[in-house]
Write a protein that binds this DNA or RNA. Structure first.
Length: 433
RNA sequence: GUGCCUGUAGCUUAAUGGUAAAGCUCCGCUCUGUGGCAGCGGCAACGUGGGUUCGAUUCCCAUCAGGCACCCCA
Protein backbone atom coordinates (compact mmCIF):
# COMPACT_ATOMS: atom_id res chain seq x y z
CA UNK A 1 0.00 0.00 0.00
CA UNK A 2 2.57 2.62 0.91
CA UNK A 3 4.36 1.94 -2.31
CA UNK A 4 2.80 4.75 -4.27
CA UNK A 5 3.05 7.00 -1.31
CA UNK A 6 6.68 6.23 -0.86
CA UNK A 7 7.39 6.87 -4.47
CA UNK A 8 5.85 10.30 -4.31
CA UNK A 9 7.88 11.10 -1.29
CA UNK A 10 11.08 10.04 -2.95
CA UNK A 11 10.44 11.87 -6.13
CA UNK A 12 9.57 15.03 -4.27
CA UNK A 13 12.99 14.85 -2.69
CA UNK A 14 14.68 14.55 -6.00
CA UNK A 15 15.65 17.63 -7.85
CA UNK A 16 13.71 18.57 -10.90
CA UNK A 17 14.16 16.33 -13.87
CA UNK A 18 13.42 19.32 -16.06
CA UNK A 19 16.11 21.59 -17.32
CA UNK A 20 16.20 24.53 -19.65
CA UNK A 21 16.04 23.45 -23.30
CA UNK A 22 19.32 22.66 -24.98
CA UNK A 23 21.22 25.75 -25.94
CA UNK A 24 18.77 27.99 -24.08
CA UNK A 25 19.71 29.50 -20.78
CA UNK A 26 18.08 31.00 -17.75
CA UNK A 27 19.30 34.49 -17.05
CA UNK A 28 19.62 34.48 -13.27
CA UNK A 29 19.45 37.50 -10.96
CA UNK A 30 23.21 37.48 -10.56
CA UNK A 31 23.62 38.16 -14.29
CA UNK A 32 20.81 40.67 -14.64
CA UNK A 33 23.02 43.72 -14.13
CA UNK A 34 24.88 42.75 -17.32
CA UNK A 35 21.65 42.42 -19.21
CA UNK A 36 20.24 45.60 -17.81
CA UNK A 37 23.40 47.32 -18.99
CA UNK A 38 23.03 45.86 -22.47
CA UNK A 39 19.44 46.99 -22.75
CA UNK A 40 20.29 50.44 -21.53
CA UNK A 41 23.23 50.69 -23.88
CA UNK A 42 21.09 49.67 -26.82
CA UNK A 43 18.53 52.29 -25.94
CA UNK A 44 21.10 55.03 -25.38
CA UNK A 45 22.95 54.34 -28.60
CA UNK A 46 19.72 54.10 -30.54
CA UNK A 47 18.46 57.39 -29.21
CA UNK A 48 21.69 59.21 -29.81
CA UNK A 49 21.64 58.07 -33.44
CA UNK A 50 17.90 58.65 -33.80
CA UNK A 51 16.76 55.08 -34.22
CA UNK A 52 13.19 54.18 -33.28
CA UNK A 53 12.32 51.00 -31.45
CA UNK A 54 10.42 48.21 -33.15
CA UNK A 55 9.28 44.87 -31.80
CA UNK A 56 7.97 42.09 -33.98
CA UNK A 57 6.46 38.72 -33.07
CA UNK A 58 8.84 35.91 -32.20
CA UNK A 59 7.20 33.89 -34.95
CA UNK A 60 6.88 34.56 -38.64
CA UNK A 61 5.81 32.66 -41.68
CA UNK A 62 8.70 30.44 -42.70
CA UNK A 63 8.57 31.82 -46.19
CA UNK A 64 9.78 35.24 -45.12
CA UNK A 65 13.11 33.76 -44.21
CA UNK A 66 13.23 31.23 -47.00
CA UNK A 67 12.84 33.92 -49.60
CA UNK A 68 15.10 36.44 -47.98
CA UNK A 69 17.93 34.53 -46.42
CA UNK A 70 18.15 31.83 -49.06
CA UNK A 71 17.16 28.18 -49.15
CA UNK A 72 20.74 27.05 -49.53
CA UNK A 73 21.99 28.67 -46.36
CA UNK A 74 22.55 26.74 -43.16
CA UNK A 75 20.10 28.95 -41.35
CA UNK A 76 17.23 28.04 -43.58
CA UNK A 77 18.30 24.57 -44.54
CA UNK A 78 18.92 23.24 -41.06
CA UNK A 79 18.58 25.79 -38.33
CA UNK A 80 14.99 26.92 -38.23
CA UNK A 81 12.75 26.09 -35.32
CA UNK A 82 9.49 25.08 -36.90
CA UNK A 83 6.41 25.57 -34.79
CA UNK A 84 3.67 22.99 -34.89
CA UNK A 85 0.47 24.74 -35.94
CA UNK A 86 -2.82 23.81 -37.53
CA UNK A 87 -1.35 24.29 -40.96
CA UNK A 88 0.63 27.48 -41.34
CA UNK A 89 4.35 27.03 -41.78
CA UNK A 90 5.54 29.10 -38.86
CA UNK A 91 9.04 29.40 -37.44
CA UNK A 92 10.71 31.07 -34.52
CA UNK A 93 12.62 33.94 -36.08
CA UNK A 94 16.26 33.08 -36.80
CA UNK A 95 17.09 36.73 -37.39
CA UNK A 96 15.33 40.05 -37.35
CA UNK A 97 16.21 41.82 -40.57
CA UNK A 98 13.53 40.18 -42.67
CA UNK A 99 10.77 40.70 -40.08
CA UNK A 100 11.68 44.37 -39.75
CA UNK A 101 11.53 44.73 -43.51
CA UNK A 102 8.16 42.99 -43.50
CA UNK A 103 6.88 45.40 -40.86
CA UNK A 104 8.33 48.35 -42.73
CA UNK A 105 6.14 47.65 -45.74
CA UNK A 106 3.17 46.31 -43.85
CA UNK A 107 2.80 49.55 -41.92
CA UNK A 108 4.18 52.00 -44.43
CA UNK A 109 7.04 52.97 -42.16
CA UNK A 110 8.67 54.97 -44.92
CA UNK A 111 6.75 57.84 -43.41
CA UNK A 112 8.98 57.60 -40.35
CA UNK A 113 11.79 59.09 -42.29
CA UNK A 114 13.75 58.89 -45.44
CA UNK A 115 15.26 56.56 -44.58
CA UNK A 116 13.58 55.03 -41.54
CA UNK A 117 15.94 54.08 -38.75
CA UNK A 118 14.74 51.20 -36.59
CA UNK A 119 16.26 49.23 -33.75
CA UNK A 120 15.41 46.16 -31.70
CA UNK A 121 16.62 44.11 -28.77
CA UNK A 122 15.17 40.65 -29.02
CA UNK A 123 15.80 36.91 -28.85
CA UNK A 124 16.49 34.92 -32.01
CA UNK A 125 16.29 31.17 -32.44
CA UNK A 126 18.50 28.82 -34.39
CA UNK A 127 18.61 25.07 -34.09
CA UNK A 128 22.32 24.57 -33.77
CA UNK A 129 24.89 22.68 -31.77
CA UNK A 130 25.69 24.97 -28.83
CA UNK A 131 29.29 25.94 -28.22
CA UNK A 132 31.36 28.94 -27.20
CA UNK A 133 29.32 32.05 -27.86
CA UNK A 134 26.62 30.14 -29.64
CA UNK A 135 23.15 29.34 -28.40
CA UNK A 136 19.83 28.21 -29.72
CA UNK A 137 18.15 31.20 -28.20
CA UNK A 138 20.30 34.30 -28.28
CA UNK A 139 19.68 37.99 -28.06
CA UNK A 140 20.55 40.50 -30.70
CA UNK A 141 20.55 44.25 -30.56
CA UNK A 142 20.02 45.41 -34.10
CA UNK A 143 19.97 48.62 -36.06
CA UNK A 144 18.42 48.91 -39.49
CA UNK A 145 18.32 51.83 -41.89
CA UNK A 146 15.65 51.25 -44.52
CA UNK A 147 14.59 53.31 -47.50
CA UNK A 148 16.15 56.12 -49.47
CA UNK A 149 19.13 55.59 -51.67
CA UNK A 150 21.86 53.01 -51.35
CA UNK A 151 23.95 55.78 -49.90
CA UNK A 152 27.35 54.69 -48.55
CA UNK A 153 27.06 57.11 -45.68
CA UNK A 154 24.47 54.81 -44.12
CA UNK A 155 26.87 51.91 -44.41
CA UNK A 156 29.39 53.91 -42.44
CA UNK A 157 26.83 55.11 -39.93
CA UNK A 158 25.60 51.59 -39.26
CA UNK A 159 29.11 50.31 -38.73
CA UNK A 160 29.74 53.27 -36.47
CA UNK A 161 26.68 52.44 -34.37
CA UNK A 162 27.81 48.85 -33.89
CA UNK A 163 31.34 49.92 -33.11
CA UNK A 164 30.21 52.56 -30.63
CA UNK A 165 28.04 50.03 -28.90
CA UNK A 166 31.05 47.81 -28.28
CA UNK A 167 33.18 50.75 -27.25
CA UNK A 168 30.60 51.99 -24.78
CA UNK A 169 30.28 48.45 -23.46
CA UNK A 170 33.99 48.82 -22.69
CA UNK A 171 35.22 46.24 -25.12
CA UNK A 172 38.79 47.00 -26.07
CA UNK A 173 40.58 46.10 -29.24
CA UNK A 174 37.53 45.53 -31.39
CA UNK A 175 38.40 45.22 -35.05
CA UNK A 176 36.11 45.82 -37.96
CA UNK A 177 36.45 43.43 -40.85
CA UNK A 178 34.93 44.79 -44.00
CA UNK A 179 34.39 43.75 -47.58
CA UNK A 180 32.15 44.42 -50.52
CA UNK A 181 30.42 41.58 -52.27
CA UNK A 182 29.12 43.62 -55.20
CA UNK A 183 25.69 43.69 -56.70
CA UNK A 184 23.53 41.73 -59.14
CA UNK A 185 25.51 43.17 -61.98
CA UNK A 186 29.04 42.41 -60.93
CA UNK A 187 28.75 39.56 -58.49
CA UNK A 188 27.59 36.84 -60.92
CA UNK A 189 30.61 37.38 -63.14
CA UNK A 190 32.89 37.15 -60.13
CA UNK A 191 31.18 34.07 -58.82
CA UNK A 192 31.64 32.40 -62.19
CA UNK A 193 35.33 33.25 -62.14
CA UNK A 194 35.62 31.95 -58.62
CA UNK A 195 33.78 28.80 -59.47
CA UNK A 196 35.93 28.01 -62.45
CA UNK A 197 39.04 28.69 -60.41
CA UNK A 198 37.98 26.24 -57.75
CA UNK A 199 36.75 23.74 -60.32
CA UNK A 200 40.27 23.59 -61.66
CA UNK A 201 41.40 22.69 -58.16
CA UNK A 202 38.36 20.63 -57.34
CA UNK A 203 40.30 17.59 -56.24
CA UNK A 204 42.29 19.51 -53.69
CA UNK A 205 39.44 21.10 -51.80
CA UNK A 206 37.44 19.57 -48.99
CA UNK A 207 34.16 17.69 -49.39
CA UNK A 208 32.06 20.54 -48.06
CA UNK A 209 33.58 22.91 -50.54
CA UNK A 210 32.96 20.53 -53.42
CA UNK A 211 29.32 20.74 -52.53
CA UNK A 212 29.45 24.49 -52.21
CA UNK A 213 30.74 24.73 -55.77
CA UNK A 214 27.21 23.97 -56.88
CA UNK A 215 25.24 25.75 -54.22
CA UNK A 216 27.13 28.82 -53.12
CA UNK A 217 30.65 29.24 -54.52
CA UNK A 218 31.18 32.48 -52.59
CA UNK A 219 31.23 30.45 -49.43
CA UNK A 220 34.37 28.67 -50.57
CA UNK A 221 36.19 31.76 -49.44
CA UNK A 222 35.57 31.39 -45.75
CA UNK A 223 36.31 27.68 -45.44
CA UNK A 224 38.73 26.96 -42.63
CA UNK A 225 40.18 23.80 -44.11
CA UNK A 226 43.93 24.22 -44.55
CA UNK A 227 44.07 22.88 -48.08
CA UNK A 228 41.16 25.04 -49.09
CA UNK A 229 42.81 28.08 -47.62
CA UNK A 230 46.01 27.34 -49.50
CA UNK A 231 44.11 27.22 -52.74
CA UNK A 232 42.08 30.24 -51.78
CA UNK A 233 45.19 32.38 -51.62
CA UNK A 234 45.42 32.19 -55.39
CA UNK A 235 41.74 32.78 -55.99
CA UNK A 236 40.41 35.85 -57.74
CA UNK A 237 39.56 38.69 -55.38
CA UNK A 238 36.14 40.25 -55.60
CA UNK A 239 37.37 43.80 -55.29
CA UNK A 240 39.00 43.42 -58.71
CA UNK A 241 35.66 42.48 -60.21
CA UNK A 242 33.34 45.07 -58.72
CA UNK A 243 31.46 47.19 -61.21
CA UNK A 244 32.10 50.91 -61.30
CA UNK A 245 29.12 51.74 -59.11
CA UNK A 246 29.98 49.19 -56.47
CA UNK A 247 33.60 50.17 -56.53
CA UNK A 248 32.71 53.82 -56.02
CA UNK A 249 30.24 52.87 -53.30
CA UNK A 250 32.79 50.85 -51.39
CA UNK A 251 35.40 53.54 -51.80
CA UNK A 252 33.04 56.04 -50.24
CA UNK A 253 32.28 53.75 -47.33
CA UNK A 254 35.97 53.42 -46.59
CA UNK A 255 36.45 57.15 -46.89
CA UNK A 256 33.73 57.75 -44.34
CA UNK A 257 35.25 55.19 -42.00
CA UNK A 258 38.60 56.93 -42.36
CA UNK A 259 36.91 60.22 -41.61
CA UNK A 260 35.45 58.69 -38.44
CA UNK A 261 38.86 57.22 -37.65
CA UNK A 262 37.38 53.76 -37.24
CA UNK A 263 39.98 50.99 -37.34
CA UNK A 264 39.01 48.55 -40.08
CA UNK A 265 40.59 45.67 -41.87
CA UNK A 266 39.88 44.93 -45.50
CA UNK A 267 38.98 41.26 -45.60
CA UNK A 268 38.37 39.97 -49.08
CA UNK A 269 37.45 36.57 -47.66
CA UNK A 270 34.60 37.94 -45.64
CA UNK A 271 31.42 36.66 -47.21
CA UNK A 272 28.27 36.68 -45.19
CA UNK A 273 26.07 33.66 -45.39
CA UNK A 274 22.75 35.28 -46.03
CA UNK A 275 21.60 35.71 -49.60
CA UNK A 276 20.16 39.15 -49.14
CA UNK A 277 23.42 40.94 -48.63
CA UNK A 278 24.98 43.06 -51.34
CA UNK A 279 27.86 45.50 -51.43
CA UNK A 280 29.12 46.26 -47.92
CA UNK A 281 29.42 43.41 -45.44
CA UNK A 282 31.21 43.63 -42.11
CA UNK A 283 31.90 41.82 -38.88
CA UNK A 284 33.45 43.06 -35.68
CA UNK A 285 35.76 40.87 -33.62
CA UNK A 286 37.32 41.22 -30.18
CA UNK A 287 40.91 40.15 -29.77
CA UNK A 288 41.23 36.56 -28.65
CA UNK A 289 37.75 35.42 -29.59
CA UNK A 290 36.96 33.57 -32.76
CA UNK A 291 33.35 34.58 -32.98
CA UNK A 292 32.03 37.88 -34.29
CA UNK A 293 30.50 40.21 -31.74
CA UNK A 294 28.62 42.08 -34.37
CA UNK A 295 27.95 41.82 -38.05
CA UNK A 296 25.82 43.13 -40.80
CA UNK A 297 25.72 44.62 -44.22
CA UNK A 298 23.74 46.19 -46.96
CA UNK A 299 20.64 44.39 -48.19
CA UNK A 300 19.19 46.42 -51.01
CA UNK A 301 17.52 43.39 -52.58
CA UNK A 302 15.74 41.96 -49.58
CA UNK A 303 12.48 43.78 -50.16
CA UNK A 304 12.33 42.53 -53.73
CA UNK A 305 13.22 39.00 -52.71
CA UNK A 306 10.30 39.13 -50.31
CA UNK A 307 8.17 40.50 -53.13
CA UNK A 308 6.86 43.28 -50.95
CA UNK A 309 8.48 46.34 -52.45
CA UNK A 310 11.74 47.99 -53.09
CA UNK A 311 14.01 49.65 -50.59
CA UNK A 312 17.69 50.17 -50.10
CA UNK A 313 18.74 49.09 -46.63
CA UNK A 314 21.68 48.63 -44.35
CA UNK A 315 21.83 46.98 -40.97
CA UNK A 316 23.92 45.72 -38.11
CA UNK A 317 23.27 43.31 -35.30
CA UNK A 318 25.17 42.68 -32.11
CA UNK A 319 25.32 39.38 -30.26
CA UNK A 320 24.48 40.23 -26.69
CA UNK A 321 25.58 36.95 -25.08
CA UNK A 322 28.88 37.25 -26.89
CA UNK A 323 29.46 40.77 -25.71
CA UNK A 324 28.71 39.74 -22.14
CA UNK A 325 31.02 36.75 -22.48
CA UNK A 326 33.88 38.95 -23.63
CA UNK A 327 33.20 41.39 -20.80
CA UNK A 328 33.20 38.63 -18.23
CA UNK A 329 36.38 37.13 -19.67
CA UNK A 330 38.06 40.47 -19.15
CA UNK A 331 37.16 40.23 -15.47
CA UNK A 332 34.43 42.79 -15.57
CA UNK A 333 31.83 42.61 -12.82
CA UNK A 334 28.57 44.46 -12.54
CA UNK A 335 27.25 45.60 -9.21
CA UNK A 336 23.56 45.54 -8.46
CA UNK A 337 22.05 48.75 -9.55
CA UNK A 338 20.43 50.98 -7.00
CA UNK A 339 20.45 48.72 -3.93
CA UNK A 340 18.26 49.59 -0.93
CA UNK A 341 19.90 51.79 1.68
CA UNK A 342 17.46 51.22 4.52
CA UNK A 343 16.50 47.99 6.27
CA UNK A 344 13.45 47.69 8.49
CA UNK A 345 13.69 45.24 11.37
CA UNK A 346 10.56 44.09 13.18
CA UNK A 347 10.30 42.37 16.53
CA UNK A 348 6.94 40.92 17.41
CA UNK A 349 3.59 40.75 15.64
CA UNK A 350 2.53 44.31 16.28
CA UNK A 351 5.75 45.59 14.77
CA UNK A 352 5.45 43.23 11.83
CA UNK A 353 1.99 44.55 11.09
CA UNK A 354 3.18 48.10 11.41
CA UNK A 355 6.19 47.53 9.09
CA UNK A 356 4.02 46.96 6.10
CA UNK A 357 2.56 50.43 6.42
CA UNK A 358 5.90 52.00 7.14
CA UNK A 359 7.45 50.51 4.04
CA UNK A 360 4.57 52.00 2.10
CA UNK A 361 5.35 55.39 3.52
CA UNK A 362 9.00 55.11 2.55
CA UNK A 363 8.02 53.91 -0.86
CA UNK A 364 5.84 56.95 -1.31
CA UNK A 365 8.89 59.02 -0.45
CA UNK A 366 10.98 57.17 -3.03
CA UNK A 367 13.12 55.40 -0.49
CA UNK A 368 13.66 51.71 -0.99
CA UNK A 369 13.38 49.72 2.18
CA UNK A 370 14.52 46.15 2.47
CA UNK A 371 13.19 43.75 5.10
CA UNK A 372 13.19 40.14 6.13
CA UNK A 373 9.68 39.23 7.14
CA UNK A 374 10.68 35.59 7.13
CA UNK A 375 12.97 36.05 10.10
CA UNK A 376 11.81 36.93 13.58
CA UNK A 377 14.94 37.40 15.71
CA UNK A 378 16.63 40.74 15.85
CA UNK A 379 19.99 39.12 15.37
CA UNK A 380 19.23 37.36 12.16
CA UNK A 381 17.51 40.40 10.71
CA UNK A 382 20.47 42.53 11.57
CA UNK A 383 22.73 40.02 9.91
CA UNK A 384 20.76 40.30 6.71
CA UNK A 385 20.86 44.06 6.92
CA UNK A 386 24.61 43.81 7.20
CA UNK A 387 24.85 41.48 4.28
CA UNK A 388 22.80 43.83 2.15
CA UNK A 389 25.19 46.63 3.03
CA UNK A 390 22.48 49.11 3.90
CA UNK A 391 23.40 52.40 5.51
CA UNK A 392 20.60 52.44 8.05
CA UNK A 393 18.67 49.84 9.98
CA UNK A 394 15.35 50.83 11.49
CA UNK A 395 14.47 48.72 14.49
CA UNK A 396 10.83 48.51 15.45
CA UNK A 397 10.20 46.40 18.54
CA UNK A 398 7.34 45.86 20.95
CA UNK A 399 8.47 48.70 23.11
CA UNK A 400 8.90 51.07 20.17
CA UNK A 401 5.46 50.29 18.78
CA UNK A 402 3.98 51.00 22.18
CA UNK A 403 5.89 54.25 22.52
CA UNK A 404 5.36 55.21 18.89
CA UNK A 405 9.08 55.47 18.37
CA UNK A 406 11.74 53.65 16.36
CA UNK A 407 15.47 53.06 16.58
CA UNK A 408 17.62 54.33 13.77
CA UNK A 409 20.88 52.45 13.65
CA UNK A 410 23.80 53.61 11.58
CA UNK A 411 25.34 50.39 10.29
CA UNK A 412 28.69 51.89 9.43
CA UNK A 413 29.69 53.20 12.84
CA UNK A 414 27.26 51.16 14.92
CA UNK A 415 25.60 54.11 16.60
CA UNK A 416 21.90 54.32 17.15
CA UNK A 417 19.27 56.62 18.47
CA UNK A 418 15.58 56.44 19.20
CA UNK A 419 13.31 58.89 17.45
CA UNK A 420 9.58 59.33 17.41
CA UNK A 421 7.72 57.66 14.57
CA UNK A 422 6.58 61.01 13.31
CA UNK A 423 10.12 62.07 12.70
CA UNK A 424 11.59 58.92 11.11
CA UNK A 425 11.06 59.99 7.55
CA UNK A 426 12.71 63.30 8.11
CA UNK A 427 15.60 61.74 10.04
CA UNK A 428 16.20 59.03 7.49
CA UNK A 429 16.22 61.51 4.66
CA UNK A 430 18.68 63.66 6.52
CA UNK A 431 21.02 60.77 7.16
CA UNK A 432 20.88 59.38 3.66
CA UNK A 433 22.20 62.59 2.24
C1' G B 1 24.35 16.99 -38.39
C1' U B 2 29.81 15.08 -37.27
C1' G B 3 34.12 14.35 -33.97
C1' C B 4 36.69 14.65 -29.08
C1' C B 5 36.13 15.53 -23.73
C1' U B 6 33.06 15.91 -19.21
C1' G B 7 28.67 14.91 -15.68
C1' U B 8 29.47 13.88 -7.38
C1' A B 9 25.44 19.04 -2.44
C1' G B 10 23.24 25.77 -4.78
C1' C B 11 28.81 26.69 -6.29
C1' U B 12 34.14 24.77 -6.43
C1' U B 13 36.45 20.27 -5.78
C1' A B 14 37.86 14.95 -3.16
C1' A B 15 37.68 9.64 -2.43
C1' U B 16 35.78 4.65 -3.32
C1' G B 17 33.44 -2.32 -6.80
C1' G B 18 30.57 -2.46 -0.20
C1' U B 19 25.81 4.29 -1.17
C1' A B 20 30.44 9.34 -0.19
C1' A B 21 34.64 13.96 2.14
C1' A B 22 35.72 19.09 2.32
C1' G B 23 35.75 24.57 1.29
C1' C B 24 32.31 28.52 -0.02
C1' U B 25 26.99 29.62 0.31
C1' C B 26 22.57 28.81 3.19
C1' C B 27 20.13 27.78 8.22
C1' G B 28 20.76 27.53 13.56
C1' C B 29 23.37 27.81 18.37
C1' U B 30 27.14 30.04 21.62
C1' C B 31 24.64 35.62 22.25
C1' U B 32 16.17 34.97 25.15
C1' G B 33 16.36 43.16 21.90
C1' U B 34 21.69 44.26 18.42
C1' G B 35 25.27 42.69 12.50
C1' G B 36 30.40 41.97 10.66
C1' C B 37 34.82 38.01 13.66
C1' A B 38 35.27 33.30 15.88
C1' G B 39 33.81 28.38 17.68
C1' C B 40 30.19 24.53 17.28
C1' G B 41 26.21 22.18 14.81
C1' G B 42 22.65 21.43 10.69
C1' C B 43 20.33 21.10 5.52
C1' A B 44 22.07 19.35 0.99
C1' A B 45 24.89 15.36 -4.23
C1' C B 46 26.84 10.44 -7.26
C1' G B 47 22.32 13.59 -14.55
C1' U B 48 18.76 9.60 -16.39
C1' G B 49 17.79 4.51 -18.01
C1' G B 50 19.62 -0.21 -18.83
C1' G B 51 23.59 -4.07 -18.41
C1' U B 52 27.78 -6.86 -15.84
C1' U B 53 28.12 -8.13 -10.49
C1' C B 54 26.29 -11.05 -4.31
C1' G B 55 26.72 -5.71 -4.50
C1' A B 56 27.75 -0.10 -9.26
C1' U B 57 28.73 6.59 -7.71
C1' U B 58 32.99 3.63 -9.58
C1' C B 59 33.14 -0.97 -15.11
C1' C B 60 30.15 -1.32 -20.00
C1' C B 61 26.10 0.52 -23.26
C1' A B 62 22.43 3.96 -24.34
C1' U B 63 20.31 8.58 -23.43
C1' C B 64 20.13 13.56 -21.78
C1' A B 65 22.88 17.82 -20.63
C1' G B 66 27.44 20.72 -20.62
C1' G B 67 32.35 22.04 -22.81
C1' C B 68 35.46 22.36 -27.27
C1' A B 69 36.12 21.99 -32.52
C1' C B 70 33.96 21.37 -37.49
C1' C B 71 29.71 23.29 -40.17
C1' C B 72 27.59 28.05 -39.89
C1' C B 73 26.93 32.46 -37.57
C1' A B 74 25.46 37.13 -33.43
Amino acid sequence: MPKALKKTKESSKKKSVFHSPKGMRDILPIDQPFWEKMRQLTKDIAESFNFLRIDTPVMEMAEIFERGIGEETEIIGKQMFFVKTKGERMVLRPEETAPVMRAYFEHGLSRLGHPAKLYYFAPMFRYEQPQAGRFRQFYQAGFEIIGGESDPIYDAETILVAYRFLQDAKIRNATIHINSIGCHKCRPAYVRKLESYFRKNQKKICKNCQGRLDTNPLRLLDCKDEDCQAIRSGAPVILDYLCENCKAHFKKVLEYLDELKLPYLMDSYLVRGLDYYNRTVFEIYAEGFNFALAGGGRYDYLAEMLKIGKAAAMGASIGIERVIEVLKASGKTMPMKNPPKVFLIHIGDAAKKKSLVMIEEFRNNNIRVSESFGRESLKSQLRIADKEKVDLALILGQKEVFEESIIIRDMKNSTQETVSLKKVMEEVKKRLK
